[in-house]
Design a protein around this nucleic acid. Structure first.
Length: 416
DNA sequence: TCTGGGGTCCTGGTACTG
DNA sequence: TCTGCAGTACCAGGACCC
C-alpha cells in the first residue's frame, strides 16, 4: 500500500496510449493485506476493514471503504479506530500474505525472468523479451492483471512506462484495479505536472525543504540549477531529484537482490526500565537475527543495536568485529556490550533492536571466534537448534532464560 | 495523533594510515 | 619527529521506502 497518492494528470492525447518502448511494468496489489485477509471473510467485502493490531501498533493496510474515512497505512491504530469506529479490525496473517505473494511472483516469472520484487505486494518486470511471445507491454500488463485476479481472487494495478520510476508513479495513479501507460514522448510532461512529493525519495522532510526553496512541482525542480538543489538538499539528493525531474532513471530491473543487513526489533507493549528485561530481549532478538543469517547462508561483521526511549528519541550504536559471524552468542555478546556501554540507569525504553550489517556469503567468510576465543562449538550448537526448529517448529528449542515457566513445554534449553 | 517492523541510503564527524 | 593532507573505514543519526 503506497503511502502517497496523487491525482492522475490529464493526458494531452486522446485514444489508446502508445506503449512502444514502455518495457518496464510496475505491478502493485491493491490493498494487498486487506484483500488477502478478506479471502476467508467474504462477508466483509465492501465494508471498512483495517488490518493491524496491538495496543501500540499502526495500520498495515485498509480496504478502500475504510480509506474513505481517512484511514491510511502506517497510521496509529488508535487514530484509525477513531476515524472509522465501524471498521472491522483484523490481525495480520503474514503466513497467508507470504503464500499469496509467492504465487503472484510465480505468475510474474512465467511472463519474464526479469522480475524484481520490491516487497510482498509489488514488483518491477522488464517485459522487453516477452513482447514477441505475448504482445505489446500494455497487453502483457492486462494479462497479468487477469491472471492475478483469476488465480488469487485479488486485484492489482499496473504502471507501464520506459523507466522504473515512471512505471511506479503510473501504477500509483492507476489504483485501484487499473492500468496506466505513460508513452515515451509523454514522460517528461507527465512527471513535471506532479507535486514534488511524488518524486521517489521525497518524504515529509525533503518536501518541506523543497517548499522552503519555493519549489512546489516537479517542473519547478527541473528548472532549478542543480547546484542550488545540491546546496539545499545535499549532494546526492540534489543530483537525484534533478535527474528524476527530467524523468531520467537509468536503473534496470534487477532480479537478483543481495541483502545488506538483517535485523529485528521489538516495540514493547509498555515502556520498560528493567535492564534484565532488556537483556532478555537482546537475547531473543540476537537469536532471531542469527537464525535468519544462517537460514540465508550469510554472515556479517558489524553488529548494531537500536534503542528507542519513551519520548521516541532513538539512538543506535554499532561495533565492527574482526571477523564475520552468524553465531547467536557472538551477536548477543556484542549487542549486550553495546547496550551496557550506554550506561542507562532506569531509562524508560520503548523499543530495542539488533541488526547485523556488512553481510557476505557464509561459504566465503573466514570462520573465527570472537575476540580470539576458540570456537567452542557454538556454531554447531546453533546449527543443531536450527535443525530442531525446522523439525519441531520455531521456538521448540530456545535459551533457558527465554522459557516462560507458565508455558514451559519446550525441549532442552540451549545457549544463553 | 502518537507513531511497527523490515530494510536502504546518505551525511557528517572522527580516527587511522601513508 | 612533527605537520598537513588525502583517502578510507567506521560510527551515529536521519530520512526514506514498503
Amino acid at each position: 500500500m503506497s503511502r502517497r497518492q496523487f491525482a492522475l494528470p490529464e493526458r494531452a492525447a486522446e485514444g489508446p496510449p502508445d506503449d512502444t518502448g514502455c518495457t518496464v511494468l510496475h505491478v502493485d496489489m491493491d490493498a494487498f493485506y486487506a484483500s488477502a485477509s478478506l479471502l476467508s471473510r467474504p462477508e466483509l467485502v465492501g465494508t471498512p476493514v483495517i488490518i493491524g493490531g496491538g495496543n501500540r501498533g499502526v495500520v498495515l493496510s485498509a480496504t478502500y471503504e475504510a480509506r474513505r474515512f481517512g484511514v491510511t497505512s502506517a497510521m496509529p491504530m488508535g487514530r484509525a479506530r477513531r476515524l472509522c469506529p465501524q471498521a472491522t479490525v483484523i490481525r495480520p496473517d503474514h503466513e497467508l500474505y507470504s503464500q499469496i505473494s509467492k504465487a503472484v511472483m510465480a505468475t510474474f516469472a512465467s511472463i519474464t525472468p526479469l522480475v524484481e520484487p520490491l516487497s510482498l505486494d509489488e514488483a518491477f518486470l522488464d517485459v522487453s523479451g516477452a513482447i514477441r511471445r505475448l504482445g505489446p507491454p500494455a497487453q502483457i500488463a492486462q494479462q497479468i492483471r487477469d491472471a492475478v485476479h483469476d488465480e488469487q481472487g485479488i486485484t492489482c494495478s499496473v504502471g507501464v512506462a520506459p523507466t522504473k520510476f515512471v512505471a511506479k508513479l503510473a501504477s500509483g495513479l492507476a489504483k485501484p484495479d487499473g492500468l496506466v501507460v505513460v508513452p515515451v514522448d509523454e514522460v517528461v510532461p507527465f512527471v513535471q505536472q506532479l507535486p514534488v512529493g511524488a518524486l521517489w525519495g521525497v518524504g515529509d522532510r525533503t518536501e518541506e525543504a523543497l517548499l522552503r526553496l519555493g519549489l512546489h512541482t516537479v517542473a519547478d525542480i527541473a528548472h532549478t540549477p542543480v547546484e542550488t538543489l545540491r546546496r539545499g538538499l545535499g549532494e546526492a539528493m540534489g543530483s537525484q531529484l534533478h535527474e528524476l525531474s527530467w524523468a531520467r532513471d537509468p536503473r534496470r530491473v534487477e532480479p537478483v537482490h543481495r541483502e545488506k543487513s538483517i535485523g529485528a526489533d521489538e516495540t514493547f507493549p509498555y515502556d520498560v526500565d528493567d535492564p534484565a528485561y532488556i537483556h532478555r530481549e537482546l537475547l531473543r532478538l540476537s537469536d532471531r537475527v542469527a537464525a535468519r543469517l544462517r537460514s540465508a547462508g550469510m554472515m556479517g561483521r558489524t553488529v548494531s543495536i537500536k534503542v528507542r526511549f519513551a519520548d521516541f528519541t532513538t539512538i543506535t550504536r554499532s561495533r565492527t568485529l574482526r571477523d564475520p559471524t552468524d553465531v547467536s552468542r557472538d551477536i548477543l555478546a556484542t549487542a549486550r556490550s553495546l547496550y551496557d556501554a550506554l550506561g542507562l540507569q532506569r531509562a524508560r525504553i520503548r523499543l530495542v533492536g539488533v541488526r547485523v550489517e556488512g553481510l557476505l556469503d557464509a561459504e566465503r567468510a573466514p570462520i573465527q571466534g570472537l575476540l580470539d576465543e576458540p570456537d567452542h562449538g557454538w556454531r554447531e550448537a546453533d546449527r543443531a537448534v536450527d535443525l530442531a526448529s525446522r523439525r519441531f517448529g520455531a521456538g521448540s528449542v530456545r535459551p533457558a532464560s527465554l522459557i516462560d515457566r507458565k508455558d514451559d513445554q519446550g525441549g532442552p534449553a540451549a545457549g544463553g
